[in-house]
Design a protein around this nucleic acid. Structure first.
Length: 579
RNA sequence: GCGGCUGUAGUAUAGUCUGGUUAGUACUUGGGCCUUCCAAGCCUACAGCCCGGGUUCAAAUCCCGGCAGCCGCACCA
């Protein structure tokens, strides 16, 4: 299987291996080795180039440990869990709600554990496997818990996603962006999930790296300013309707996807486009990519629309590497509720609106004495209440009842109704959030898998020039003093100029080319005898073993142009001629 | 988390059933020789029985536990 060969080379040549090996390892953790770490960083920097430079989003960095309150608000403390139950006899563990649903057909999702436990005993549900008794229902929370501070009273969790770190300082971010939508903020970093049994190598890690962008937009306007530029761009879509129907992947242009309402907004389609362009430049071809829409049943309740970018693998089938979701205003709303901070944005209308409006104004001489210290709270409540509703209640009941800590009856004599002209310049709204969320480790894996090339006697990573960990190899043709010293000098010079260059003189030249190819070094410079007399050197292309002789003085510019794809290797030929 | 199978240098393996010499081989890697362009050859070196306990005069080998990997179930996105 290609997977096995790739992981083998990856381990052997220092890209990736499982962590803590000398202590037998722990499932769900990996080390990136010397080359893997560079590769991963280059991929992350390319991501930054796309989202920070290209899209104009800004990057922030927030802690990986978060206090319990914050994750209560996001719903992770209560909902990032599974209700589990264990058979007392065979010790098998089950999802409690699934067992009950299977037995009774009742939808019990989201019910308290106690109620689930009761349901199990009421319905005399037994272990589906052995018929044994099932234990009390407990929550398995996927978050790693820790204690903050010396006394350890404050519960903290390792963050399960980087996104929350962006929602929490929303007010400061909004100020930074001078109170105007839309704007985007990104974060790249580690996230943690204590998976029950991670067995899919780098696909399911307990500690993994995410790159997430949170794009805050006006819910009324999910268009994208550059949509017209990408409207002919083709996307391989696998919408929910196809998944439930003919299982066919359909190829549509961005425009068609929008017109036919396959994808819910321009903004979302633009994000799909961007993701695909990014992956393509990483060397993941379109034919192993698809965009799969979440089924209504699997979508989080707050999401409006959600698409996974999936990559085809021989080992794991289609795997999700990127999730692109319209999360609506869910996150900001719940942080608003929990923190009682106002996380709304004031949206100014294009034209101010003048309206006539009846307001209920308290008659303080009567209102104050009647409600005493509750008066301020009641006034605030009335301000937020539609005065028509109050009027109606007066007509039918003779009073208007307000329930705060107690119930209060407001009588007509307490209020005066007044007609006022009001100019409304805008309104405060919660922005909606479009979130592309990249699983960096899975992307690194996909790059390794799909860049790996097998030709007769040559196995190598065909990395794009801008993500190849080692950028250039420098060899002496033979292991002779005059050649080696020149090659060493060239290598040092290139290092000084910022290239990741490697020198190698061991074994035959062929072996060195092979070694260099295997780890995906795109170019090799070879010092031969002609170099000594003519100040030229041969440059060899990894992908086709072609060589061209170039002046030594031109090496840095040529390498840089090749790295940034400003020129292709085959075009060098017309500039410098054949070897 | 449960059940089955598996675990020997960096990699691939022999040896395990039937306990007994210095754990063998190939590739890789380091050093050297040779070599005027694609894993050649020669010399040489480094490197291993997953961890812990038990049985035994003696354990890579038998037994128990742990850990990890694979497969199935369950779980997860």
């Amino acid at each position: 299987m290609k997977h096995d060969q790739v992981m083998n080379v990856a381990k052997k040549r220092g890209f990736l291996w499982s962590s803590f090996e000398i202590y037998s390892g722990v499932a769900g953790f990996v080390d990136y080795g010397p080359l893997g770490a560079i590769l991963k960083n280059k991929i992350m920097n390319k991501w930054r180039k796309y989202y920070v430079v290209g899209e104009g989003f800004y990057e922030i960095e927030s802690p990986t440990i978060m206090p319990e309150e914050a994750l209560k608000a996001s719903g992770h403390v209560d909902h990032f869990t599974d209700p589990m139950t264990e058979c007392k006899d065979c010790m098998d563990v089950y999802r409690a709600d699934h067992v009950i649903e299977e037995h009774t057909g009742e939808d019990v999702e989201g019910l308290e554990n106690q109620i689930l436990t009761e349901k199990i005993s009421e319905n005399k549900i037994r272990c589906p496997r052995c018929g044994g008794h099932l234990n009390k229902v407990w929550n398995y929370n996927l978050m790693f818990q820790t204690l903050i501070g010396a006394k350890g009273k404050k519960i903290g969790y390792m963050r399960p996603e980087t996104a929350q770190g962006i929602f929490i300082p929303f007010k400061r971010l909004l100020r930074f962006f001078r109170n105007k939508l839309p704007f985007g903020v990104v974060q790249l970093g580690k996230a943690y999930r204590n998976e029950i049994s991670p067995r899919q190598g780098v696909i399911r890690l307990r500690e993994f790296t995410q790159a997430e962008a949170e794009i805050f937009i006006n819910p009324q306007d999910k268009s994208h300013p550059r949509f017209s530029k990408i409207k002919e761009y083709k996307l391989n879509l696998y919408p929910a309707s196809s998944q439930m129907g003919d299982k066919k992947i359909i190829t549509l242009t961005a425009h068609e996807a929008h017109k036919n309402e396959i994808v819910s907004s321009e903004m979302l389609i633009y994000q799909l486009y961007l993701a695909q362009k990014f992956l393509r430049e990483l060397g993941i071809p379109d034919n192993v990519l698809r965009f799969r829409q979440h089924l209504p049943t699997e979508m989080a309740h707050y999401a409006i629309d959600c698409w996974d970018v999936e990559v085809k693998t021989d080992r794991y089938g289609w795997i999700e590497i990127i999730g692109i979701a319209d999360r609506s205003d869910y996150d900001l709303k719940s942080h608003s509720d929990y923190s009682s901070e106002d996380l709304k944005v004031f949206m100014e209308y294009p034209e101010p609106v003048n309206i006539k409006k009846t307001i209920a104004k308290p008659n303080m001489q009567k209102f104050g004495p009647a409600f005493k210290n509750q008066a301020p709270a009641l006034m605030k409540f009335l301000e937020e209440t539609d005065s028509e509703e109050i009027k109606k209640s007066f007509q039918t009941n003779g009073f208007f009842e307000v329930e705060l800590e107690d119930k209060y009856q407001i009588l007509p004599e307490h209020l005066e109704f007044e007609e006022v002209d009001e100019t409304i310049r805008g309104e405060k709204i919660f922005p909606h959030v479009i979130e592309p969320s990249f699983g960096i480790d899975r992307i690194v894996y996909s790059v390794l898998l799909h860049c790996f090339n097998q030709e007769e006697d040559k196995n190598y990573f065909q990395f794009a020039t801008d993500i190849a960990p080692v950028e250039v190899s420098v060899f002496p043709l033979l292991n002779q003093e005059d050649l080696t010293s020149m090659a060493q000098d060239i290598k040092d010079k290139l290092r000084e100029l910022g290239f990741i260059a490697e020198y190698d003189s061991s074994g035959t030249i062929g072996r060195r080319y092979a070694r260099s190819d295997e780890i995906g070094v795109p170019f090799a410079l070879t010092v031969d005898h002609e170099s000594l007399s003519s100040d030229t050197i041969t440059i060899r292309n990894r992908d086709d073993s072609q060589q061209i002789r170039i002046p030594i003085a031109d090496i840095p510019t040529i390498l840089l142009d090749l790295k940034e794809s400003k020129i292709e290797f085959k075009n060098l030929k017309s500039l410098y001629g054949d070897l």
